[in-house]
């Protein structure tokens, strides 16, 4: 079995299985945990939990007033690579074909040139995020191995994908196999590391909104 056959076959299959198992396990165990009752008295005029949750999420989409340029840059940079990743993942025809194989649905893809530009911008943005993490004293203090590893596991598929598309560095079948293997690694790591925020971000931000909303604080 060639490396490409291994990547397209058993590797991606096992990775998808681990991903599914891990995500299910983490979401169910988290949502099903017994909640500690909030014993505070709801402040008069406080919004309902639902609207506090939604507005908590929405308000977190932008930097609150008073924060400096660095925070704004970090946020915008975050949007850039998130959007970039989405464009690459959902817009590249080869990826759509992969998803069609899994879910049976497809949609029109974007021109390869657009994807290539998006990939280069995304890569630059990811590097900027890492530089900030490593240079800001506060970020350095709160960063753990989980953060750095998650950065690596996110960046590798973008880098290897770019190399595969541009046929750089090795034969195409090897580049494609390595690219698929990096995606398999991402899928396996996803439920257990920081990547799980793709699901949990909605819960954590809404929960913060609910917690403070009840106390009459908009955060």
């Amino acid at each position: 079995m060639s490396l490409l056959d291994f990547a397209r076959g058993p590797a991606i299959e096992v990775a998808l299985a681990v991903f599914t198992l891990g995500v299910m396990w983490r979401l169910i165990s988290l949502l099903g945990l017994p909640w500690a009752k909030d014993r505070t008295v709801r402040r008069a005029g406080a919004p309902s939990d639902f609207s506090a949750g939604v507005s908590g999420f929405i308000r977190h989409l932008w930097v609150p007033k008073g924060f400096g340029m660095t925070s704004r840059f970090a946020l915008i940079n975050g949007y850039v690579f998130h959007l970039g990743l989405a464009i690459i993942f959902f817009g590249f025809v080869q990826h759509i074909l992969f998803l069609r194989g899994l879910f049976g649905v497809s949609w029109p893809g974007l021109p390869t040139s657009v994807i290539s530009i998006a990939a280069v911008v995304t890569l630059g943005s990811l590097v900027a995020a890492l530089v900030r993490r490593m240079t800001s004293p506060v970020m350095r203090l709160i960063s753990t191995a989980n953060d750095y590893f998650t950065w690596l596991i996110t960046t590798l598929p973008v880098l290897t994908g770019l190399l595969a598309v541009s046929h750089l560095g090795a034969r195409y079948e090897t580049l494609l196999a390595i690219h698929i293997l990096t995606v398999a690694a991402l899928l396996i790591w996803f439920p257990f590391g920081k990547l799980m925020h793709a699901f949990l971000v909605f819960l954590t931000r809404a929960e913060t909104g609910v917690f403070y909303g009840r106390r009459g604080v908009k955060i």
Partner: peptide
């Protein structure tokens, strides 16, 4: 297509 995965047994995902 070359980029599509070759599932030996899709039931594995359901089982997972």
């Amino acid at each position: 297509p070359l980029s599509a995965s070759v599932m030996g047994n899709p039931a594995i995902i359901g089982g997972a």
